[in-house]
Amino acid sequence: MKAAKFDYTKTNDVAEALSVLTAEDGDSKVLAGSQSLGPMMNLRLARPDRLIDIRALDALKAVTQAPDHLFVGALVTHAAIEDGILPDVTRGMIQHVAAGIAYRAVRNRGTIGGSLVHADPAGDWPAALRALGAQIVIDGPAGTREAAIDTFQLGAFTVALEEDEIVRGVRVPALSGSARWGYHKICRKPGEFAESIGAYVCDPESGIARLVLAATEDAPLQLDTAAAAIAQNDGAKFDLDAARMALTETGETFDPFKLRMHAVALHRAVAQAYGA
């Protein structure tokens, strides 16, 4: 199908983008890589009255390295991350994650900020950046604010972003040399939406241990108790039964098939982190 009619505005000014977002009547949507909004508009699941094309906003393309993090502008594409153009502060994790997103033709256009804001439950960046404990940098009429990723995604396709705000970028914490990570996706075929995603990051130096399950019907699920235990045992006791137990202990209900699949995703992510 084809997208329904809409007005189109392109701007190279953040303030103008923010004002257009709220000044006009009707429903406005921000357009970046168009790899998620594009299909939704073609299928008419989304019918915005106005699109604001932000690809010319240079402020959202910046990549800057600080001692404790890497700031990645919202418009940085998955392909740029996959190709290792960015400084590696995550011991290769974000490069690995980027390379596994959909297909190269999609990665050439799709953006890290778009993925976060679109907040598909099966999205890679919401899962991977949650495991890394990233900070979201948000521009709004009152200036710039930061939000922890843990509270950013409220549910499937829903984020804590006001109507007059856009994501400027994301601060990815730098991992130390002794940090470990694992990321495992279960897909029927390469590039397809994941049926389950397990992500694990542990950094003994900063004391961080985070285990995340994604591709449920909701926002990514963080399993802190399990993560702490895994870090303490160097992953040794985290077998499939332990993974199933950890999932059950979250209080979420999964059907038996999904529970099994999610347990496998978590188990494999942790196994990858510890080289098992």
Partner: peptide, 15 residues
């Protein structure tokens, strides 16, 4: 598009 393969149905001509 500018040297890289893209999905022609997922970008607008205007872009």
């Amino acid at each position: 598009l500018d040297g890289d393969v893209v999905r022609g149905c997922l970008m607008l001509a205007i872009q």
